[in-house]
């Protein structure tokens, strides 16, 4: 469960996110879309407690992020757009490290299926320097999933993955939502979002333009034919033209 109310973030005098409120219930996947610089990464970083919000309150899994950050963070996982790994820990050592930080018992038994799921089991004893970018991303995701988070934030999780990786990632996200996780993800790959998300939120220059289920948003930005085409919706909502 994620609840943010009146979230705002200023960088100096520039306000990157203005007055954003959102709720994501267990089992829901919220897609955060918007043009470059709309404030998606900023929003996700605030929600995950990486940068302090200028105003507003955030509750993650029932814990106030400002008052009880440790309890809130124990329940969440954040996946940055660029995988951040330690250069001198192997794949396996990353998982051991994360397990100790989150107090995950018996992590080897949990890690192996993750490594298999993301097809990096054969690289288990290699350093990140020897992995391709997509593999690094898969490792970062495996690390984040190890403690079974109830709340997940993905910043552009699909860029850089191969087609099979994208399919697996999509299935993995859907499966975890079905299992009761609340998920927010940002992406520019709108046709993929359509398959994964239950809800969308469109941001532009830090402000919410529209949110709701896919059907609601589509209805509002009236695709007359009835078919939900997020790309069409996006272009109309953000006021862009194709030419």
């Amino acid at each position: 469960m994620i609840e943010a109310s009146q979230l705002a973030k200023n960088y100096g005098s520039f306000s990157a996110v203005k007055d954003l409120s959102l709720t994501v219930r267990p089992g829901e996947v919220l897609g955060l879309v918007g043009p470059n610089g709309a404030g998606k990464t900023t929003t996700l970083r605030c929600l995950a407690g990486i940068i302090p919000a200028t105003r507003g309150s955030i509750r993650v899994a029932g814990h106030d992020l400002a008052a009880d950050p440790v309890a809130a963070k124990r329940a969440l996982a954040f996946f940055p757009d660029e995988p951040r790994l330690f250069d001198y820990l192997t794949v396996r050592q990353h998982l051991a490290f994360v397990a100790r930080i989150y107090g995950v018992r018996d992590h080897e038994a949990l890690a192996q299926p993750l490594l298999d799921e993301f097809e990096i089991a054969d690289k288990a004893d290699q350093l990140p320097g020897e992995l391709s970018r997509g593999m690094k991303q898969k490792l970062a995701i495996a690390c984040g999933l190890l403690h079974g988070p109830a709340v997940m934030f993905f910043d552009e999780p699909l860029t850089g993955l191969d087609p099979l990786g994208i399919r697996r990632m999509k299935n993995s996200i859907i499966a975890r939502a079905r299992a009761g996780a609340a998920i927010v993800l940002s992406s520019h790959l709108l046709h993929l979002l359509e398959e994964v998300c239950t809800h969308v939120l469109i941001l532009k220059r830090g402000e919410k333009i529209a949110d709701g289920t896919l059907a609601e948003v589509a209805a509002r930005f009236g695709s007359a034919e009835g078919g939900v085409n997020l790309e069409e919706v996006f272009i109309r909502a953000t006021g862009g033209t194709e030419h």
Binding site: F86, D87, Y88, L89, Q93, A96, F97, A99, R100, I101, Y102, G103, V104, R105, D106, H107
Partner: peptide, 18 residues
Amino acid sequence: LRAPGRPEVAFFWKNLLS
């Protein structure tokens, strides 16, 4: 490095590897 245990030790372990 076994879990669970003091998380501070994990940093010790990681940084020794560096």
